[in-house]
Design a protein around this nucleic acid. Structure first.
Length: 729
DNA sequence: ACAGCGTTAGTTTTT
DNA sequence: CTAACGCTGT
């Protein structure tokens, strides 16, 4: 056991060996958060304080849950069996499957992802004849989800004006519709599980007696409902029998809270302290990731935020390199600099996957990708289409869903005419109308319709029927194969020119089914409760809850491109934070909202703390946005970093000795015009707004000519010679 | 049933 | 500037 604690620093050890009590651990970036969490569990178990079934560990992502299990398996001599480790959604799904009747759900209930949910809402609005201009489906969906995340049902929702009142009605209709179809959306998964425990006292007592330690990762990202769920399970706020209820061990970092827009509420951190009477908070501030300069920059930046619990990262590593700042003349210029820098780093032996290019919004990847592609640098963009989101996979899953639950209208509508079998929109409309009148699902309405035997509609119903009859006798993978074959999907994609890849994906789905069953059997389960609905329902839930890797890395070691949000939790030797311009990062939409700027700053903080050794901050003076070129001001975050930590990078400039690679082709161009406008490199100039500076490079000629000037006070700028009014000094 | 056209919007996202 | 969506015409 002492081995467990051997490599921990004092605060980490204090957190791990805390007596059985509620606790909040404020874990800074790179401070060994996951390690503390897993070691705590291992310590609790190996010191005999709790048996594995007494542990409930909650994360937000499947990746984090998996990582926790892997590390635990390495630490503990005994099996992790019996522990509940998973995402909020995964665990709630488990609860609902085990107690589906008490929760008022069919055994085969399906889980709607965001796209499915939107599709349900669209159909609902249509059937109710709602003007979707006034009530855009996306807004309605957001309205519904926001309420559910607050734990508010339609019946309790406040309708303070007529418009809202209508949306509450739609929320109620949506609830009814989902109930009729036997489907639950993501938020419903949590709300149902919460209500299940809240209303069923014996059941709640059972779990309160079982779980003695609840550990939560990324606590700052919890929404109100998730916090309420945790409190309920921990037995907080109600009188419960002696020896039951759990200790809540929450690990989080308020400075890395970047998901307020989807309901995360940092207020939960304050409430946790208050409601659980936490006298002290353990702070993990020693950072094992980054060099000193990077941490100093991060600290200085985040200090500008007013509402913080307070924390200061430090390291035993040296100061390291200065933070490099580059100002591009344009977004393209910025990208060229970055890629040239990347090439140089790779040339010096740095692994490409240790270089990350971060941006605030996805659209920004375009220019970077173009440049990387042109220069032949392998790269990988995170955040693309996920496996279970692919069209062909969704089609196949829809058939499987129909087999499991014929009332699933979303699934029905998706495949009723795919592959095309002559069931047009007219037929579907009639069907929808019949279903609405009979208050039944599309499938049942279709059964009731006076369809001619042999009609395409009847053949479709036969197909689903036939598959459903065969389903129970078949192993899951075989069933998937059967569905792909008999539905005509395989034949359809065989005739398709881009179908090759889609067929590969469908075959991959069969593999996924095999893998899934393997893993399923390996873990769980001495408990009977975990499958309500058999392997098919479990597989479908898996498909909804774990959307799969974004794309299998093609093996080739590649430069990593992603949004700052997607980078949270990751680390790289070298990080480029790009597009550091006002309006872009911080994003203008965020700045307008009340606390928006602070969240943007936290986002910047997350970005900065991703870097181990080298950090580049880049921005452009003009950028193409929505088809128009915009003049861009540097991000205010650049000004919030101590100048002493920064070093401006000059690129393709005379005599600077900066990376000259890539300048070859353009070298001649600017050499010819270096005398443009009477300016020369090294010329001292004065600008009305920026003051004194030195010309470091010249480009273009005539009305197009521009000069890069390093201003004493304002750093590097590109200026139009025609308009800048530079005075020679 | 589907191609082709016009319109419109355009942060961040896991489950 | 795009991409995505919805509508119209064949």
């Amino acid at each position: 056991m002492s081995d467990l604690l051997a490599h921990l620093n004092p605060p980490q050890r204090a957190a791990v060996t805390l007596p059985a009590q509620h606790a909040l651990i404020l874990a800074g970036a790179g401070s060994g958060k996951t390690r503390v969490l897993t070691t705590r569990i291992a310590w609790l178990i190996s010191s005999g304080q709790v048996a594995p079934p007494g542990i409930l560990a909650v994360t937000f992502t499947n990746k984090a849950a998996k990582e926790m299990l892997t590390r635990l398996a390495a630490m503990l001599p005994i099996s992790t069996r019996g522990m509940w480790v998973g995402t909020f959604h995964g665990l709630c799904n488990r609860l609902l499957r085990a107690h589906y009747q008490d929760a008022g759900l069919p055994a085969q209930f399906q889980i709607l992802d965001l796209a499915d949910q939107l599709s349900v809402i669209k159909r609902l609005l249509k059937s109710l004849g709602v003007d979707d201009e006034r009530y855009p489906p996306r807004d309605v969906m957001h309205f519904i989800n926001a309420h559910k995340e607050q734990g508010v049902r339609a019946a309790q929702a406040e309708a303070y004006d007529q418009y809202t009142s209508r949306r509450v009605e739609l929320y109620a209709a949506y609830e009814a519709q989902c109930q009729r179809e036997g489907v639950v959306d993501f938020a419903e998964l949590l709300l149902r599980a919460y209500e299940l425990l809240q209303r069923n006292e014996p059941l709640c007592r059972h779990y309160q007696a079982r779980f003695r330690h609840i550990l939560v990762d990324e606590f700052q990202d919890t929404n109100r409902l998730q916090y309420a769920w945790l409190k309920l399970l921990a037995g907080h706020g109600s009188v419960i029998p002696e020896g039951t209820g759990a200790c809540l061990f929450a690990v989080g970092d308020d400075d890395q809270s970047i998901y307020a827009f989807r309901g995360a509420d940092i207020g939960n951190m304050h409430d946790l302290q208050r409601e659980f009477h936490l006298s002290e908070v353990i702070r993990l501030e020693q950072n094992y990731r980054s060099h000193g300069n990077i941490l100093d920059a991060a600290n200085a930046l985040i200090q500008q935020n007013r509402s913080r619990l307070g924390k200061q990262l430090w390291t035993e590593a040296g100061a390291g390199e200065a933070i490099r700042v580059f100002t591009g003349w344009s977004d393209v210029d910025e990208a060229r600099f970055i890629v040239s820098e990347v090439s140089a780093l790779v040339g010096d032996g740095m692994a490409r996957d240790q270089i990350a290019l971060l941006y605030r919004s996805n659209a920004q990847s375009r220019v970077l990708e173009h440049e990387l592609f042109t220069r032949g640098v392998p790269y990988r963009v995170h955040g693309g289409l996920r496996f279970f989101d692919r069209q062909e996979i969704r089609h196949a899953l829809a058939y499987l869903r129909l087999i499991a639950n014929p009332d699933d209208d979303t699934a029905f509508a998706r495949v009723v005419n795919f592959p095309p079998r002559g069931i047009g929109s007219r037929t579907v409309e009639l069907l929808a109308e019949a279903a609405r009148q009979a208050n039944s699902s599309l499938y049942r309405a279709a059964l009731g319709l006076p369809g001619k035997p042999g009609s395409s509609a009847a053949r479709f119903l036969d197909l689903v029927d036939r598959l459903r009859v065969q389903a129970p006798a078949r192993p899951l993978a075989e069933l998937v194969d059967l569905v792909i074959e008999q539905s005509g999907l395989r034949a359809h994609y065989l005739n398709d020119k881009e179908g090759r890849e889609r067929l590969d994906n469908l075959n991959e789905l069969i593999n996924a089914a095999i893998t899934f069953l393997g893993e399923e059997g390996e873990q769980e389960n001495e408990e009977q409760d975990s499958d309500g609905g058999g392997p098919l329902a479990a597989f479908l839930a898996h498909a909804s809850l774990e959307a799969g890797e974004h794309q299998a890395g093609d093996g080739q070691e590649a430069v990593q491109l992603m949004t700052v949000h997607a980078a949270k939790g990751l680390e790289f030797d070298t990080v480029f934070i790009t597009g550091l311009e006002h309006g872009l990062f911080p994003h203008e939409n965020a700045v307008r909202a009340g606390e928006g700027l602070e969240e943007e700053r936290r986002l910047m903080y997350v970005a900065v703390t991703r870097a181990r050794r080298r950090l580049y901050l880049t921005h452009a003076q003009r950028r193409m946005l929505h088809g128009q070129t915009h003049e861009c001001q540097p991000s205010l975050f650049l000004d919030e970093l101590p100048a002493a930590l920064l070093r401006r990078i000059e690129w393709r400039t005379a005599g600077s000795g900066a990376r000259a690679s890539g300048a070859g082709a353009e070298h001649g161009t600017w050499q010819e015009v270096r005398k443009a406008g009477g300016l020369r490199i090294g010329q001292n100039v004065h600008h009305a707004r920026f003051g004194a500076g030195v010309v470091v490079s010249l480009q273009g000629s005539g009305a197009d000519g521009r000069a890069q000037v390093n201003f004493d006070k304002h750093g590097m700028k590109w200026l139009h010679l025609a308009t800048a009014g530079l005075a020679l000094v």
